[in-house]
Design a protein around this nucleic acid. Structure first.
Length: 983
RNA sequence: GCCGGGGUGGCGGAAUGGUAGACGCGGUGGUCUCAAACACCACUUGGGUUAAACCAGUGGGGGUUCGAGUCCCCCCCCCGGCACCA
């Protein structure tokens, strides 16, 4: 063996030996603990792996290898996320079929992964486009369908005009398709959805128990977007400006409906309803009677000067009837709409309300207003429609909107407020309508300023806001403050303070946010005007794709327009093997144009048509980790016992970019499967780690005349070859994520060829903390190779003294100081390395190995004369090889072989840490005076505190610092330091 | 704006409230060599000194503590995510 690291002489050899020995075949022995380590399911790109991918796979490999050596049954699988847009687009570009292409790419990935020595069990590998796999994806689809969690509906969805398909909300970033970069359009077509919203609360709550990066959990929480508030009804009134002014000045809070609901006539009616035996034919009778009673009530209240909210009374009655089990249609409803707010405590500050332009009630309001307002409404809706989502959400968005001419009654004070339509209210969230409180909401404030609408503060502002509002020691509220808010544009009112009390809110004045919210919520519920409600931002998961290369949706549409699931026995619905599969572009799938595929028979043998949309790729990757537990099963998706044995994935490693897509979808499916009793875990990934990116140095030159720069770039991208011919002062180097298009990719192939796989692995582990981005530096790989050479040299220099059965002999030997020092270094290394691998501290793992090697070199023992040293050295040689093995498995096996060991390090036992051997006899004690380091002393590790104190005080240097001072206190931390407090 | 993560030598980065800068890169000097490369040895936070002593020092300001990179409060900056979500 050489005394240096020469990878070309042994790396390929060991890879072959591992393969011949089937070394990485998953072990499933009873009585061993299990460890499931997985990397994110990769899409095998034609560009192949870069060293950036290796930064994901190598650390997982280290962990899995170490776990195996520590006695675990390890599941470390790899497969390919082959279905989906990227593969199809690539195949279209190449004018080939995706199936053979993806197979070739996957094989190349595998070759590269083997090249860097990743310990995958390839016997468990599969691609999501394998019919044996997607058969079960379809099976899960049917399961969801049967549970009502998969449905088809007409929807205005995100249409990507470049990829010619619809996309999920999660795939849209700032109005653009994440993949193609195209501005998405809204398109109204029937689409398949998974009802992930039904699991919103559980997806949110269960995040707490996961060992995941905080950032990912926060992103998911934010995406789910839970908010609790009150949804209440507002009644539309068509009144004149004068009537509005009058009513605004007066305003009467709506009476509670308690009188109404306890009205004896209504009670009698309810009794009658119950007595009718819940017969539907009673409805007409009951309805008419109820309407009569309600009308009387309303009139009486009005004449008494206490108007009641008629809608709420009939609603109360309706509720009672429904509770009694009777379908009951009340008289013609008045025109109302609902608003959602998280700050019902500010309801008295409502000075207008806003509908989204798409709100369905706008048509009805339009019908009730004069032609001028009708025109304004029409015009605004036209404009809003023409705007893309991007324009609507642009950064410099200026508020736009238009007054409808109609008013709505604020139930809290009976005052009418103008109804506006504006596109800052989103149709898709809440009810698509809001109460606007400009005094305490930034957006409403901006809107009110622009359109000169009233601003009323209803939360007592914080003292600090009110510098400038003092008038003779009193705060200026109400009109003066409103005036001020309106005139001073750069003033920021206390928009969302929850720490102050309510003002200008009638009987609610003085209440806190909590009291006010609860009390108003209760009041509205009592009146049946509103109810406390929880809203989520999360929407259902759109899975339809109008593309060929995906998992077919196993549904048949019958002639009658009904949906039928393809029987389980007929799965999979296979993709037809066709030559032309380009997207149609008209919103239909290419499959729709393949008659042989479309035309089929339904369950009754009649003609039917297959669903032609395919599932988006994220469906396929939402359960693959379960298939890995039992990948060859031909009768089931997985055997429950096998899945229950391996699941959950103990450590899941991949990039942070999947935070709200794959990771959320996979959690959703797992929960559904858990509910079905198909798996006993409720969460798929117990622990998640995101690796940092590897950035490549990327040259840009200054633009020439007439050249335009790309988005966000300050130069023209050039290749390395071009860069050589460009003067230095015209070049700018930037660090950018490695990508084919940037031409800054470093491949594992070239690194393995020039520096070796192990050097690449060590470099990737050592270069930075696992989660940090790194700037690629080939010189660093050289440094890693140098470290490996030092281990080879150490082994070569000492292997003549290696005693194979040192373990049996060392106990009988009196250890020399040198032997003790070696054993101490050995056991400290075992302790620290083991801990750091477990905690994903791979950079410090490697540095412990370096320190260990340095420490061994520092001990100048004589192995020929000192038997105990020779034995300790033998232990050290073995230990350093084994501790190195997960990181540099080829080198470890080469070294292992060179000291005469049989087999592979992978099969050897992980070194056992012995506490007693790691302990120091003598330690350095720091001596501080008033917390400042003044001296150090050597002392026995177990020296009593009094001795340390005595020694410390006796130090001449300490004495000089204590001169003229009185010692107040001496703090002794055994084994660490002595601090003398004096003044 | 909101949420999450950070800010430590020339660089990547170490540090259960207890000697800040481990480990490595780079640099300087030396050994080996005809020479270079490789390798090895020594030094390498800044100021200060022949050398030491000593002083300062973990983005800034306060605080808790015998003792703070680490804990608490305020502020600044960088990275990532979300963004008119009522």
């Amino acid at each position: 063996m050489a005394d240096r690291y020469e990878p070309s002489t042994f790396e390929a050899k060991w890879q072959q030996s591992w393969k011949d020995a089937d070394l990485f075949k998953t072990r499933e022995e009873p009585d061993r603990p299990k460890f499931y380590g997985a990397d994110f399911f990769p899409y095998p790109s034609g560009a192949g792996l870069s060293v950036g991918h290796c930064r994901n796979y190598v650390p997982t490999d280290v962990l899995c290898r170490a776990k195996y050596m520590q006695g675990y049954n390890v599941l470390h699988p790899m497969g390919f996320d082959a279905f989906g847009l990227p593969a199809e687009n690539e195949a279209i570009k190449q004018k080939s079929h995706p199936a053979p292409m993806i197979k070739r790419y996957a094989e190349n990935y595998r070759r590269q992964m083997d090249l860097v020595g990743i310990s995958y069990d390839w016997s468990r590998s599969f691609s999501s486009s394998d019919p044996e796999y997607y058969r079960w994806t379809q099976w899960i689809f049917e399961l969801l369908y049967k549970k009502g969690l998969a449905y088809r509906k007409m929807a205005a969805v995100n249409w990507d005009p470049v990829d010619k398909t619809v996309l999920a909300d999660e795939e849209i970033i700032g109005g653009r398709a994440e993949r193609s970069g195209a501005l998405v359009e809204k398109k109204l077509i029937p689409q398949w959805f998974f009802k992930i919203t039904a699991y919103a609360e559980r997806l949110l709550n269960d995040l707490d128990g996961l060992d995941w990066p905080e950032g990912i959990k926060a992103q998911q929480r934010n995406w789910i977007g839970k908010s609790e508030g009150v949804q209440f009804r507002m009644e539309v009134r068509f009144i004149s400006d004068e009537e509005f002014q009058q009513a605004w000045n007066k305003g009467v809070k709506t009476e509670t409906s308690s009188a109404a609901t306890s009205n004896p006539e209504l009670d009698a009616l309810q009794a009658e309803v119950l007595a009718s035996g819940f017969k539907p034919e009673a409805d007409a009778n009951v309805t008419s009677k109820a309407n009569q009673i309600l009308g009387n009530l309303e009139n009486a209240a009005f004449q008494a000067g206490k108007p009641i909210e008629s809608e709420s009374v009939s609603h109360a009655f309706e509720t009672a009837s429904v509770k009694a089990g009777l379908e009951f249609a009340p008289r013609d409803r008045k025109l109302t709409f609902e608003v959602f707010t998280t700050r019902v405590d500010t309801v008295f500050g409502m000075t207008f309300c806003v509908l989204s332009p798409e709100h369905e009630i706008v048509d009805k309001i339009r019908a009730g207003v004069d032609p001028d307002h009708q025109k304004a409404i029409d015009q605004y809706r036209e404009e809003a429609k023409a705007k893309t989502d991007t324009e609507r959400t642009a950064d410099d968005r200026e508020k736009t909107g238009v007054f409808t001419g109609a008013y709505a009654i604020n139930p809290a004070n009976g005052k009418p407020v103008p109804i506006w339509i504006a596109d800052y209210v989103l149709a898709g969230y809440g009810t698509g309508a809001i109460m606007a409180v400009p005094g305490h909401d930034e957006r409403d404030f901006a809107f009110a300023l622009k359109f000169n609408l009233d601003i009323i503060p209803v939360i007592k502002p914080d003292e600090t806001y009110l510098r400038g509002f003092h008038k003779d020691g009193d705060f200026l509220y109400e009109a003066a403050l409103a005036d001020y808010l309106r005139n001073v544009k750069n003033f920021t009112p206390p928009f969302v303070s929850k720490d102050s009390e309510m003002i200008n809110s009638g009987e609610y004045n003085g209440l806190t946010y909590q009291e006010g919210t609860a009390s108003l919520g209760r009041w509205m519920e009592g009146l049946s005007i509103g109810e406390r409600k929880t809203q989520y931002k999360l929407r259902d998961w759109l899975i339809s794709r109008q593309r060929y290369w995906g998992c077919p949706i196993p549904v048949i549409h019958t002639k009658e327009g009904e949906e039928q699931l393809v029987p389980e026995s007929a799965l999979p619905v296979e993709l037809p093997d066709v030559e032309h599969y380009e997207p149609a572009g008209d919103g239909s799938s290419p499959l729709a144009h393949i008659p042989d595929f479309v035309n089929t028979t339904d369950l009754d043998g009649r003609l039917g048509q297959r669903e032609t949309d395919t599932m988006g790729g994220f469906a396929c990757s939402s359960w693959y980790f379960l298939r890995f537990c039992d990948p060859l099963n031909t009768t089931k998706a997985w055997d429950i016992d096998k899945a229950n044995y391996w699941m959950p994935v103990d450590c899941y490693v991949g990039g942070a970019e999947h935070a709200v897509m794959h990771l959320l979808y996979a959690r959703f499916w797992t929960k559904v499967l858990f509910d079905e009793g198909l798996i006993k875990v409720n969460e798929p990934f117990a622990r998640l780690q995101n690796q940092g990116q590897v950035l490549g140095n990327t040259p840009y030159r200054q633009p020439r005349e007439g050249e335009t720069l790309g988005l966000g770039e300050d130069g023209i991208l050039v290749s390395y070859a071009e860069a050589k011919d460009i003067p230095e002062d015209q070049l700018t180097w930037r660090w950018a994520r490695m990508s084919k298009s940037k031409g800054n990719v470093v491949t594992p192939d070239e690194m393995v060829a020039t520096h070796g796989a192990d050097a690449l692995r060590i470099y990737l582990l050592f270069v930075a903390p696992f989660t940090a981005d790194v700037e690629w530096d080939t010189a660093g790989v050289g440094a890693a190779a140098k470290f490996l050479s030092r281990i080879f040299r150490f082994t070569e220099d000492n292997k003549a003294h290696y005693v194979n059965d040192w373990r049996d002999l060392i106990a009988f030997e009196e250890l020399s100081d040198n032997a003790k020092a070696v054993r101490r270094a050995t056991h400290k290394a075992i302790r620290d390395v083991t801990k750091d691998i477990d905690e994903f501290g791979f950079n410090t793992y490697i540095s412990w190995l370096m320190k260990y090697l340095n420490a061994l070199g520092d001990v100048k023992g004589n192995a020929t004369e000192d038997r105990s040293y020779a034995l300790a050295l033998s232990e050290a040689i073995e230990t350093i090889i084994l501790l190195l093995a997960p990181a540099a498995p080829h080198s470890a096996d080469e070294l292992w072989d060179s000291i005469g060991k049989e087999g592979f390090t992978y099969q050897a036992n992980w070194p056992k840490f012995e506490e007693a051997l790691a302990e120091e006899d003598s330690v350095t004690i720091a001596i501080q005076v008033n917390g400042k380091l003044r001296d150090t002393i050597q002392a026995a590790a177990k020296a009593p505190n009094e001795d340390l104190e005595k020694q410390a005080l006796a130090q001449p240097k300490v004495q000089t610092f204590l001169e003229g001072l009185t010692i107040r206190k001496v703090i002794v931390i055994p084994g660490k330091l002595v601090n003398i407090v004096a003044n």
